[in-house]
Design a protein around this nucleic acid. Sequence first.
DNA 1: ATCACATGTAATAATTATATTACATGTGAT
DNA 2: ATCACATGTAATATAATTATTACATGTGAT
Lengths: 120, 120
Amino acid sequence: MSNYKSPENVDGYLKVYSGLAHPMRIKIIGVLWEGRRHVSELAKMLEISRPLLYMHLKKLEEAEMVSSSYEISESGKSMRYYKVNDFIILITPPMLADLAKAIPLPLKAKENSTNNSTDG
Amino acid sequence: MSNYKSPENVDGYLKVYSGLAHPMRIKIIGVLWEGRRHVSELAKMLEISRPLLYMHLKKLEEAEMVSSSYEISESGKSMRYYKVNDFIILITPPMLADLAKAIPLPLKAKENSTNNSTDG
DNA sequence: ATCACATGTAATAATTATATTACATGTGAT
DNA sequence: ATCACATGTAATATAATTATTACATGTGAT
């Protein structure tokens, strides 16, 4: 049984879709799926720099596909561990059509993700 | 019953995910879901220029989420009609983990979508 | 011939996303 | 103090995406 919650607004869905739009981020999920890792460890496994990895992790975290927690290792160092969240994403044309209703035209002004309520 | 076929390789999945990573493209699917439209018509409805619309449509078509066909109107003009394809996209961590296996490290050389064999 | 409307694309500009480099901090061990 | 290893981020460079402008073509009607 899953306790996955769908994004609440268009911006949330866009973060999920964009989150998956880079091969390295899919790779990150693949690696983390085999077990949680701390940042430096992950950077070595993926053969990329930490700053770049942070950028990718930030996007995945904002899309709520991964999450992190701090932990003190035996040797006393603070480490940030990442893990893959439980999620199920289902996309069909009618679902996108429904989502599209919340996208205004023209598309200039970027919507504010914190203010998305329907009342005034 | 659906006759939807999943992408065959990583590049195909990336095209689908990237295809959904822009609000205008979700909007396009929303509009086309209500009925097929020809390009000029669609551009007016979406309040964007045709060249820009072509760019978005190209991405959606490459992701196989929409498709087009030419038709001669009553007045004799050739029009390109677009419609939404039937598709179902399901994404879960283990599915992404499986997909990730096909992503090589380091991530420099861009994979050729036509040459995806495993031997050397 | 000119207009209204359809097709398409090449060239460029503007904006975002991706990637790199350099720096700063903290811990425990030597 | 210096090393090895962990954290984080600011500043910058590079690459890719998105957006605009300009051009070219074709049809039927006036």
